[in-house]
Amino acid sequence: MPDARKKILEVHHLKQYFNVGKRDEVRAVDDVSFDIYEGETFGLVGESGSGKTTAGRAIIHLYEPTSGEIIFNGQDVSKLHTKKQMHAFRRQIQMIFQDPYASLNPRMKVKDIVAEGIDIHGLAKDDADRTKQVEDLLETVGLNKDHSSRYPHEFSGGQRQRIGIARALAVEPKFIIADEPISALDVSIQAQVVNLLKELQVKQNLTYLFIAHDLSMVKYISDRIGVMHYGKILEIGPADEVYNHPLHAYTKSLISAVPVPDPEFERNRIQVPYDESREKDDKKRRMVEIAPGHFIRASEDEVAMYTQRAVDAGLING
């Protein structure tokens, strides 16, 4: 399978707890491991509160992880001590945010927002160069250069999201964490942003961690998908496989909830309920490779059941 490719990010047993030791301790991310290969899009899905954002922020080092290892480009992120190393790291990973209204400073002009990274990392020779870079970036995301002297509140949600993308691109990152970049947008605008991200990926050889709660869009943009629930990843596999032949009951339930723009289908839809009590028994579970590249979080006695499902779905030969 794709193991021959270079891993750009490795996450090993990441735990991110909040309020450790207090009564309101939250285990937002609880023992999560996954790899992301260079040039691919890894989709992370799960319902609200499942820990997707927290995982993304821990990776980009906005949080100090409780435990676990994050290795980016062969380098352990927690071991970046000097300012210079951190600075270099910041240029390589960037983030796109969910809420297009909260992610742009309302008191700054678009050109200064987009140029923020350019200024911090000193990427422009002079003012003219800075302006040129900003205008090019705006054009890349489909905006005009006369937008650069306006303020964020003058733009629609989709336009703002594109400004956020331009800001992230300014430092020429290798890896972008997109935290629900389309959830707050209209369906028609979602496609614009998804297409833009795909186009940029090809042109600039980007790797994405794409976070969302809606599996149907994630399937489009992702090569592989991880399904998260209660701080744990339950299933990881190739996008089409996870979407068309989910093995974990939770994934099945999540897929059955996606609305489909087809009245005939909707009239006959059956929503698959999910019984989460099983997850809470005290059995030891770990990620087991059920089919090639397709992992399920399972206890020893569940492996046989999942293998059977994989055989039934034609993923492996019985």
Partner: peptide, 13 residues
Amino acid sequence: NQDFILAARTLGE
């Protein structure tokens, strides 16, 4: 905790 501040932090400000 607003996203634009987080964005500035991820840029290394």
